[in-house]
Design a binder for these strands. Structure first.
Lengths: 343, 343
DNA sequence: ATGAAAGCGCTAACAA
DNA sequence: TTGTTAGCGCTTTCAT
């Protein structure tokens, strides 16, 4: 409850005016070195801390950015946030995090909460459920800089930082082919989610590039959940001519598949190969360990934050630069796809 | 860039004054129902959104709370944050999250950043490294309500919401005893961290209650990391008379232990039993699956947030209620400790 | 029941 | 180089 020191407290102390003190603290060019010096000393002595709220009200900048993530339970997103914070912190910017839990409504509410908090910009990874994008368009119209990361959407003209999902899927599938698997299935995610669609395309392209037929019956219309993976296992093995490997759209579904296949008594990777996507933390610890595609999460967060901060800085310059940063997927091949070396 | 509607915009529209509009919007008792009605309508029609920054400056409340967590990579904390947000959201309060990454310095900087952002209160889970607590005492002195969750510290008089670590450790150890294990080791964490100390005490108490000798050589001075668990495996098995089970202070060390023991060719749970603590997400997916103690994470977050908000509301009432909420640990016994049923 | 006026703490235009 | 003045948008006395 100690009364906080304000600019005018310092001003009074030094027989200056609040404006001068403010300028000195903000390193304004035309303040004498001597004044700056004494102001800085007084500020330190009196434990002055700038009131960001007052500053924000006046300057119109809150020095906060918002982040909307589908879930804190995938440590993929935790990792991206880590990257975001590392950039924000160096610039004295706070990060407001909101979870959508993959729900459209919570995403909309999150956008409103962040705008109510007057954040200077928002980083978004779109929820699985979302098919209407007007809440993003509205925010843009109000002049709030937006950047998508991982889960983006075209045709909105909103900058994004993503991994090359097509290429990642291509590499994952090709790895299975190189390991000698011949009937390679795919657990697909909701196709309105761009990353899921791109991964299906990458899978198909890898088959074609390697002269393997694409069989629609080998694509399971699944989801990015463990449950979907389990269901896929049942489906694949009930086929008259079952696959001997699968590329899953995401690690949780890959995990469900792995468990399902194991429970059916098939050897992994000997009789069935699996590659997932996202390189979730648990992948190292399953048995067999799970091959996956790393998405350079920390870098993704850094790039997204840098891009957003740049957009915020350039605001009003009429730039509207619609950048699209595409990161390289990094394959992490572990036991689950290593037939050549393990069986 | 659309110019935002303000109170006076609405006032002008209705031939009222900003003060009246403000009161109407805040449901002030002595504003005529009729006026309230028309103000509400106009506000909606003009897409009015209260400027929280101005409101904060005037009222001295930022309607934001801060959370400091050691790491987003343990989904234990992700889950607690989920609970926190669920409470905060219903009250229109934003949550600022900062990671300490278990580092003292980042924790101190985090506290400063949150205070600079003028949060109304802070929830803290103390970093592993922290042994000096003056940054918390300072914040308290400045009148910032504080609540610890999970990682707390006595002798500071700061309210906390924790799980009964002693009891959890007792139950975990006793479970191993009941399953027929007789030489039960413990991977201990840094003893200056209260939860680690309490768990060691609980372990010792369970041995005593069951008339088993406490052997100091069976306590490995470890850490809450996978690496420590691996080292413990090596240490335990190098003993002249090795243990046949272990209770690990935390799931990551339990995981390291599990991997180490498996690599040495011992059967789990047949030849070696393991119980961890925290019920991390991966525990379900290891093989064998990992027994653990659940800490009611979401509830913990809700309780902590409710307590903090209560403290904020009561501020000035000279209450200084130093609550301490202790949640019940929930054992989750899986394969890794199930000798009786599995071998 | 409503208006008038002041002020939260800071910053920015304009003066000097 | 520094001071003066005004105002960001809201809330809150005090007055009517």
């Amino acid at each position: 409850m100690a009364p906080r020191t304000t600019l005018s407290c310092i001003a009074k102390e030094l027989n200056l005016t609040a404006a001068t003190v403010s300028r000195a603290l903000n390193d304004h060019p035309k303040i004498s070195a001597h004044t700056k010096e004494s102001v800085l000393q007084a500020a330190k002595r009196m434990h002055y801390k700038k009131n960001r709220i007052a500053s924000s009200l006046r300057s119109g900048k809150s020095h906060m950015i918002g982040v909307i993530i589908p879930s804190t339970q995938m440590n993929f997103f935790g990792s991206v946030v880590h990257g975001i914070e590392s950039i924000a912190n160096t610039r004295g910017i706070n990060v407001l995090i909101v979870q959508s839990n993959e729900h459209y409504l919570q995403e909309v509410q999150g956008m409103e909460a962040l705008q109510a908090a007057r954040v200077d910009g928002i980083l978004v990874s779109i929820a699985k459920e979302t098919v209407d994008f007007s809440h993003f368009r509205d925010a843009e119209k109000r002049g709030i800089p937006l950047v998508f990361f991982d889960r983006s959407h075209d045709n909105l003209g909103i900058p994004s930082v993503v991994v090359d999902d097509y290429k990642g899927a291509f590499l994952a599938t090709e790895n299975l082919i190189r390991q000698g698997y011949r009937r390679i299935a795919h657990i697909a995610g909701p196709q309105h989610v761009k990353v899921c669609h791109d991964r299906l395309m990458g899978y198909m392209a890898a088959l074609q590039a390697n002269h393997l037929p694409f069989e629609p019956s080998l694509v399971f219309a699944g989801d990015i959940t463990l449950e979907a993976g389990r269901q896929a296992a049942g489906y694949f093995m009930s086929l008259p001519h079952p696959p001997d490997a699968a590329f899953a759209v995401e690690d949780f579904s890959a995990l469900g598949l792995l468990k399902g296949i194991k429970e059916m008594g098939l050897a992994i990777p000997g009789e069935f190969g699996i590659v997932g996507f996202a390189n979730e933390g648990f992948g190292e610890h399953t048995s067999p360990s799970l091959s996956s595609i790393d998405q350079q999460t920390v870098l993704m967060g850094k790039e997204a934050a840098s891009l957003l901060l740049q957009l915020i800085d350039e605001q009003g310059n009429g730039h509207k630069a619609s950048a699209r940063i595409v990161l390289d997927p990094l394959p992490v091949y572990r036991e689950s796809s290593g037939r050549k070396y393990n069986s």
